[in-house]
Structure formats: C-alpha cells, structure tokens
Simulated assay, not measured.
Amino acid sequence: MYKVLIIEDDPMIGDMISMYLGEEGFEVIRMETGQKGIEAVKPFAPDVILLDLMLPDMDGLELCRQVRTTSSVPIMIVSMRNKVVERVAALGAGADDYMSKPFSMHEMSARVHALIRRSNLYQNAGENTRVHPTVRHVTKPETNEALIADKNKITLDLQTRSMIVQGQLVETTYSEFEIMKCFVNHPGRVYTREDLLQTVRGFDSYVTDRAIDVHIANLRKKIEDNPKEPRRIRTVWGVGYKFVY
C-alpha cells in the first residue's frame, strides 16, 4: 500500500483528498501545519507528498526546500495560486508537479500514481547501479533502449527514465529528462525555447519560457562541474540552448 502525506490546513479540501485517495487504496495522513508536516516525513516515510503553499506557520516553498535537503520523495504542490511565476518558483524549490485548485480528483489521483511510478523506477535503477557498479549501459540504437553521451559520461536509460552522471544516479523531473533526451539525441544542435516548450508541453500545459530556463538551471546543477560556468549545456544568446561534448 502506497502512502500519501497531505500537508493542507483547509479541512474541507484536506478531508476530500484524504477520502478520495483512501478509497483508491492509499494510506493517507494529513497535517495542518508545515512544522507537523516536516516532522511526519521521516517516521511516516510517504511515497508522495501533497503540499499546499499557503500554510498557517510557514511558506510552502520553504517547506519544499527543507524536505529536499533530506529526502527525494515526490512532491506535488496543490494550491489556489495559479500564476506562472508561482509555478516556476515551485519547480525551482524542488517540486515535481503542480496542480491549481479547483482540480479534478481523478486527475489528481492519476498524477499521484505517475509520481510514485516514476520514483520507483529511479529507485530500482539506483539499486542496480549500486549492486553492479562496473556494469555500463550499451548503446542499442536499434531498440532505442538507451542513449549515451560517452565523452560526458552521461547515460540516459529510456526504459527506467533515469540519468546516470559519472556512475551516479541523478534524479530528474519528467520535463528535465525530456529536455536532456533532446540534447543527447542531437549534440551541437541549437534548441530554441519554443522547441523545448513543445517537448515538455504534453506533460504540463502551463509550462512557459521562464519554466524552461528553470529546468535548464536545474539540469546544469546536476551535470555541470561548475553550473555558473556551464560547459555542457550552453546558452546561445538570443536563440536558446545547445548541448556539447
């Protein structure tokens, strides 16, 4: 049974989500303050966190950042705030998904399942890497199972949707992985922001130019030796970005 931690101070919304997910077979607990939510993460060990941004004792983004320092649990923001800048800020704070209230319970449940499924794939990939540290993925273009940038020691596994950088599993969001897949498929090609928007828009219809910049910044932190002076994902001023060996 998968576990969901809801951090939401509105009793009506909190109870409604708890009831719906409980009927879907999840084990659910709800905390009404950010502090109680943080304290519940370790002992409850949730498979996903649903987090409201407007809590009575702390900002939801700050809570998201705090959780990210100790846990990679998927976090989905559920908030009345629906401005693009707020969605972008949530991505930058480490959130994996964002839903604006009001929302469809059916869609919310589907997104929770998707986050847990993706997280499990990452964990399985990480276990395989630790157990077999000398095993390397082999390029198999005929089956399209893996894409490799050997000179950068970056591997993308399409089956598990995982990225390995210099032998270490590096977690990515759905959008980050899709952008990286474009880069590795076509090194040297310049992608405009619109090109990258079209790549990830199928997952998040609210994604914007600014969100693309946030994804790029996050990817640089994950694959660059010095994110402030990127050598792999380079900015092409006035156009977009390109990936180089």
Rank of each mutant, 00 (worst) to 15 (best):
Leu121Lys: 13
Arg117Asp: 02
Gly94Ile: 03
Lys140Gly: 03
Tyr20Cys: 10
Val88Thr: 08
Ala95Gly: 01
Lys83Asn: 15
Ile154His: 04
Leu61Tyr: 12
Gly22Lys: 14
Gly14Thr: 01
Glu127Cys: 12
Thr139Asp: 10
Ser71Lys: 10
Pro56Ser: 02
Ala110Gln: 01
Met80Thr: 14
Ile49Tyr: 00
Lys83Phe: 12
Gln123Glu: 01
Gln123Lys: 08
Asp57Ile: 04
Pro133Met: 14
Lys140Trp: 03
Met16Gln: 12
Ala125Asp: 11
Thr129Asn: 11
Ser109Ala: 06
Glu32Thr: 15
Thr155Phe: 06
Pro74Arg: 14
Val138Ala: 02
Val85His: 08
Gln35Glu: 15
Gly14Pro: 00
Glu23Trp: 11
Ser109His: 13
Ser71Gly: 10
Glu145Gly: 02
Leu61Ala: 06
Thr155Pro: 04
Glu127Leu: 10
His113Asn: 14
Glu127His: 12
Ile75Asn: 00
His132Ser: 10
Lys42Pro: 15
Pro46Cys: 04
Val138Tyr: 00
Gly14His: 00
Leu55Ile: 02
Ile49Asp: 02
Ala110Lys: 02
Asp47Pro: 04
Arg65Val: 05
Lys42Cys: 10
Asn144Glu: 01
Met80Leu: 06
Leu53Arg: 07
Asp150Met: 05
Thr69Ile: 05
Glu27Tyr: 06
Met80Trp: 12
Asp47Thr: 05
His106Val: 08
Pro141His: 09
Glu145Val: 15
Arg68Met: 06
Ile49Val: 03
Ala40Val: 11
Asp57Ala: 00
Gly37Met: 01
Phe103Gly: 05
Ala95Glu: 05
Tyr122Thr: 07
Asp47Glu: 01
Asp47Ile: 07
Ser72Glu: 07
Thr33Ser: 12
Val41Ser: 09
Pro141Ser: 08
Tyr98Trp: 04
Tyr20Arg: 10
Pro141Glu: 02
Val28Thr: 03
Glu39Gly: 03
Met105Thr: 09
Asn124Gln: 12
Gly22Ile: 06
Ser18Gln: 01
Ser109Cys: 11
Lys83Cys: 13
Asp52Ser: 01
Ala45Ser: 15
Glu145Trp: 03
Lys83His: 14
Thr129Lys: 12
